[in-house]
Measured scan of single mutants.
Amino acid sequence: TIDDAFRAIERAIQAENEGRYREALKHFLDGGEMIVTAAEKEASQKVRNLLLHKGKEVLEWAEHLAEWILE
């Protein structure tokens, strides 16, 4: 659900702030994927587009974090 997705993102932010970057990455990926999944089930085109945009933002952040971890 969207609530689960945002809880995962909150955990990711907390982990990132505490320097637990790999854990943060996992939570960002989980949250982003949950948002995209919820968007695919959404009946309203406007809400679907907003959710897809937010999911994409979260997944892009996860990608940047992963690249930073690997440096």
Results as ranks from 00 to 15, higher is better:
W61K: 11
G32I: 15
R7Q: 10
I69Y: 05
M34C: 05
D3R: 14
R48F: 14
I69C: 11
N49P: 02
L50G: 05
E18L: 05
I2H: 01
N17F: 11
A8R: 07
K46I: 14
I35T: 02
M34W: 07
Q14M: 10
L51S: 00
I13K: 06
V36K: 14
I13H: 04
K56W: 11
T37E: 10
I69E: 00
L70A: 14
L29H: 04
E18T: 06
D4M: 11
A12M: 06
G32P: 02
A38N: 04
I9L: 12
K46Q: 13
A24D: 01
E60T: 08
R7V: 05
L29I: 08
G31E: 01
D3Q: 14
I13A: 04
A39K: 03
A38W: 11
K26T: 06
A62V: 07
E18W: 06
E16F: 15
S44H: 04
L52I: 09
E10Y: 10
W68E: 01
L65S: 01
K26D: 03
N49G: 06
E23Y: 03
E10Q: 10
R48G: 06
T1C: 10
L70I: 09
E60Q: 11
L50D: 11
E42Q: 09
E67V: 12
R11L: 11
E57W: 11
Y21N: 00
R7E: 08
E71G: 11
E67Q: 13
W61G: 02
V36D: 01
F28W: 12
E23G: 00
L25Y: 09
Q14I: 12
E18R: 09
Y21G: 01
E57H: 10
L70P: 02
I9S: 02
A12E: 00
I69M: 08
L50Q: 13
R11I: 09
E16C: 15
V58D: 01
L25C: 05
I35G: 03
A8K: 11
I69P: 00
L50S: 07
K56P: 02
G55H: 13
I35V: 06
A39C: 11
Y21M: 04
T37M: 13
L50K: 09
A62S: 01
L52F: 07
E57P: 03
A24Y: 03
R48W: 10
A8P: 00
A15D: 01
A43G: 06
M34L: 15
E60G: 08
K46D: 14
D3C: 14
A39T: 03
L70W: 13
E16V: 15
I35A: 04
D30N: 10
L51I: 03
I35P: 03
L29T: 05
Y21A: 01
R11H: 11
K46S: 13
E16S: 15
Y21R: 01
A38E: 08
W68Q: 05
S44A: 06
A15P: 01
I13P: 00
Q14T: 07
N17V: 12
G31M: 05
N17I: 14
L25Q: 02
K41N: 12
L52W: 04
